[in-house]
Design a protein around this nucleic acid. Structure first.
Length: 470
RNA sequence: GCGAGUGUAAUACAACGGCUAGUAUGCUAGCCUUCCAAGCUAGAUAUGCGGGUUCGAUUCCCGCCACUCGCACCA
């Protein structure tokens, strides 16, 4: 019955039925960008809403924010993201230290002393750079008295040319430079103090955010899995250092519960304990939650214990006090942080993969999405059994309007014959179809058809809402 | 970013150095149809973009763009 889901099946369905299109498609596309169609955006929003409800609204230790995508460049200097933007770096394969290629002597790592283990020089920085305010990228020339060029100033550099024609390039610290954020997390950390001042919650508490992030990936791959513009759902959960192990374990459980609500089968979700060598140096523990995607098993979300690294950095860089003052008067301290970080596109992909089914009904192939009801982009579709019978159409419209008012995401469908409509709704994962026939006019009952079982039941029109709700 | 491959309609595919670029499904309109892609009629939509070779290019060549696979990358 169930076969291996291929990525191309998902991509094709997404395109055909209006879930996800390639970005800028009419102009030949733009690598690493994807656009959500009418059904895709609804599915995505349903996932986001479920996340927000689960982790923010249903809890009393959580605060939501929505921070700006453009941030002061100092944010990225303090976080370490801005390093190497202008100078290619090499990485020591042994200790992961990143160093300017021209600062290395004799191929020896000045951090760990290993010789000859450097990667090729590369731009490690993947941030999209932009300028805030009016800018002109016209080089400014300065001349010596003999009219030879003394220096050339561009947006990013001052190139000074000495009497021997040797060029020395100096990176400008242009205050107008900004970046599209490469992660949403910093928008939370920079607002930690604000939330503290406004609410002064008890520890532990968390700040949650859903938003876009941008990374100039070298090679976007695997449909929406790795793209240059993507959504994140992130929480920074602030705790006393001593509690980190306990709180970490709680998060592992909460994450599994959430993945369950997304309808992801347990045997496709795997915890990968990231070994110390692969972890960021400030993280004492990281678990990658992996999922069996069509292309391969890959990271769906990450859970990281980030210690006090980020708040500590901000405190040093800004000079502002990031300490939490316990209400019992004990000694203030900088809280530690546990960060569950969800990729929205990856969640969408995992949900679609989990829901995709092909089976046979009376010898005919049937494709359907067994989406959890609370995620389905269309909750219920309404059809008149026959569209050339005005009395059926009229009644169907009435039922449609009633359900539309209740659920919002309701579709009216009178195209082709009834079987076609069922198949069409199957393919976009609509859990219920309501059909109005001649009996409806007599006794006010309708056919309620179930997507997964294809079973039909006869119920009162007035019972549809309560029946679907359950 | 490197290497290989692919690019024809919404989707899956076909064909051809030259006639109106086909097929299936899907889609639209009409007819029909009393519950799982029935049928009839009509219709719309495609050679990724740019250049070259040629009398003529969707087809051959080059560049770009995009996608797929492998490598690398994923702080």
């Amino acid at each position: 019955m169930s076969k291996e889901v291929k990525l191309e099946d998902i991509v094709s369905l997404c395109k055909r039925r209006g879930f996800i299109y390639q970005g800028s498609e009419v102009y030949g596309g733009l690598a690493g960008t994807w656009d959500y169609g009418p059904l895709g955006v609804q599915l995505k929003r349903n996932i986001e809403s479920l996340w927000w409800k689960t982790f923010v609204e249903d809890r009393d230790d959580m605060y939501g924010v929505d921070a700006s995508i453009l941030m002061n460049q100092k944010v990225w200097q303090a976080s370490g993201h801005a390093e190497g933007f202008n100078d290619p770096l090499v990485e020591c394969q042994n200790c992961k230290a990143r160093l300017r290629a021209d600062h290395i002597e004799k191929d020896k790592c000045p951090v760990c002393g290993t010789v000859g283990k450097f990667s090729e020089p590369r731009q490690f920085n993947m941030m999209f750079k932009t300028n805030v305010g009016p800018v002109e990228d016209i080089p400014k020339f300065k001349f010596n008295e003999d009219n030879s060029v003394k220096s050339i100033e561009t947006l990013d550099f001052i190139h000074e040319i000495d009497s021997n024609q040797v060029v020395k390039s100096i990176t400008k610290n242009d205050p107008s430079v900004s970046y599209l954020r490469p992660e949403t997390a910093q928008g939370i950390f920079t607002n930690y103090k604000n939330v503290l001042d406004s609410f002064y919650p008890d520890l532990p508490f968390g700040i949650a955010q859903i938003g876009k992030a941008f990374r100039n990936e070298i090679s976007p791959r695997d449909f929406v899995f790795r793209s240059r513009e993507f959504g994140q759902m992130e929480i920074e959960y602030f705790i006393p250092e001593a509690d980190w192990k306990k709180e970490f374990e709680k998060w592992v459980k909460d994450i599994h519960d959430f993945l369950d609500k997304l309808g992801l089968p347990k045997d496709k979700v795997h915890e990968l304990e990231v070994p110390a060598d692969d972890r960021a140096h400030y993280s004492k523990r990281t678990i990658d939650f992996e999922f069996d995607f069509p292309h391969k098993r890959d990271e769906l979300l990450g859970l990281a214990y980030r210690t006090d690294f980020d708040l500590g950095n901000i405190q040093r860089a800004s000079g502002r006090n990031m300490e939490y003052r316990p209400k019992d008067g004990s000694k203030p301290f900088v809280p530690h942080v546990i960060e569950p970080s969800f990729g929205i596109e990856r969640a969408v992909m995992a949900v679609l993969t989990s829901a995709y089914r092909e089976d046979e009904v009376e010898g005919e192939k049937r494709v359907y999405l067994a989406l959890p009801e609370h995620l389905a982009p269309v909750k219920v579709a309404v059809s008149p059994l026959l569209k050339n019978k005005p009395e059926l159409v009229k009644k169907a419209q009435e039922v449609y309007k009633m359900l539309k008012k209740e659920f919002g995401n309701v579709m009216y469908d009178d195209n082709g014959n009834i079987g076609k409509r069922y198949r069409r709704q199957d393919e976009i994962g609509t859990p219920y179809c309501v059909t109005i026939d001649f009996d409806t006019l007599e006794d006010d009952t309708v056919t309620l058809r179930n997507r997964d079982t294809t079973k039909q039941t006869r119920i009162k029109t007035t019972d549809i809402i309560s029946k679907i709700r359950t």
